[in-house]
Each structure stands twice: as C-alpha cells, then as structure tokens.
C-alpha cells in the first residue's frame, strides 16, 4: 500500500518518446496557448488602432523612454536567465541561482518602472476611461505585467532549489518562459510606445 500523500513521480513522467524532455515539451504547449491569448488581444488592438487614426495622438502621451528602458531591462534579464541556464547545464547550481536572482531583480526593476509610469499617467488624466486606447494600454501591459510577476515568483523558487543543486532542469524551463515574456514585450513596445 502506497500512501497517496507521499507523491511519487510516475513512470510516465520519465518516458520521452519524442526525445524532448516532458517538462520542456509541456512548456512549448503552454507558450503555444499563451501566443493565442496575447495574439487575440493584440489582433483586436491593431484592428481598432487602424480604425481610429486619433489613437496616434493618444499614443504620443506614453513615455517612450520609460518603455525603452524597460525593454532594455527585460533584454538584460533575459541574458541573465540564459547564462543561468548555461551554468545549470554545467552543473553549477549556486552560479545558476545567482543569475536567476539577477533575473528576478530585472523583473523587479521592470515592474517598478511600470508602476511609476502608470501612476504618472493616471495623475495626468490618462486613465483607463479616457479613451479605448488607454483601456487597451492598461489591459495589455497589465496582462503582461502579471506574467512578469508570475515569472518572478517561479524564478525565485527555482533559484532557491538550484542554489542547493536541486531540480537544475527547471532552470532552463523557467528561462524559456521568461524569454517568451520578453518576446511579448518586444511587440508591446512598438505597438503602444513607438508607433504614433
């Protein structure tokens, strides 16, 4: 009699008929389903944007320097994540953990800048109600920010394990997720900040 409360990894998880480790394979499917969630939102935004020429004026009120700085921060944190993966591949858990914590720091800076940006905009009357452009702006950057936040929590947990040399394969997985969040921002930045 085994106790269900003591969780044991089943044989199924260790099989790999495709040659891709199960965790990574599942992650690709997660990202596939994320692409259509962000895709649906952004496709709707682009349609409205093309339909309402005056949105260009609204977009000129977003802070291109804050957005640009955040792009830089996310790109840099992505570099840390991938360097963490490299360290994990070499079996160096503590080094991987250090890089992952730097990645978390990047996420923290990103959200901090975002919070300053939002509060400045709201203070100047660019609230969610001002125009549909701003509704889309807050919805899209908010959804993305939520992904950043979730990523930071998981990064911190994975880093804690990695520092003790445990579950090093997860370093790569959370890294891939983080790069995806980065890639989404790469599109959000021109859509909401640059194009005007």
């Amino acid at each position: 009699m085994t106790h269900a409360s003591e969780f044991q990894v089943p044989l199924a998880t260790r099989r790999s008929a495709t040659g891709i480790p199960t965790g990574r394979l599942a992650l690709w499917w997660v990202l596939a389903s994320e692409i259509v969630i962000f895709g649906g939102l952004l496709a709707s935004y682009i349609m409205f944007r093309l339909h309402h020429p005056h949105w260009a004026d609204e977009a000129s009120h977003t802070n291109i320097w804050a957005g640009g700085f955040n792009t830089f921060v996310l790109l840099t944190s992505s570099l840390f994540a991938v360097l963490g993966h490299q360290a994990a591949e070499q079996g160096d858990g503590p080094k991987a953990a250090r890089f992952l914590r730097l990645t978390v720091l990047g996420g923290l800076v990103f959200l901090g800048v975002k919070a300053l940006e939002w509060s400045g905009e709201i203070a100047h009357g660019f609230t969610i109600y001002r125009d549909l452009f701003w509704t889309f702006y807050y919805a899209a950057t908010g959804l993305h920010g939520l992904h950043v936040l979730v990523g930071m929590v998981i990064l911190a947990l994975v880093a804690q394990d990695a520092a003790r040399g445990k579950n090093l394969h997860r370093v790569e997985l959370i890294g891939i997720y983080w790069h995806f969040v980065d890639a989404v921002w790469i599109f959000l930045f021109p859509l909401f900040y640059i194009a005007r």
């Binding site: 495709t18 596939a32 692409i35 259509v36 994540a81 991938v82």
Partner: peptide, 23 residues
Amino acid sequence: YFMHLNIERRYIWYLLFTMVAFM
C-alpha cells in the same frame, strides 16, 4: 538563441508558428 529553438525539434517551430498563423 535564448529559447534554443534553433537546436530544438523542428516541429516546435511549426507549432508556435501555426499559432501565430491562426492569429
């Protein structure tokens, strides 16, 4: 390069690209 899709199985590219195509 960062997500290592260049050394991943080719069909993962196709999978992700199909999702973009649906959009």
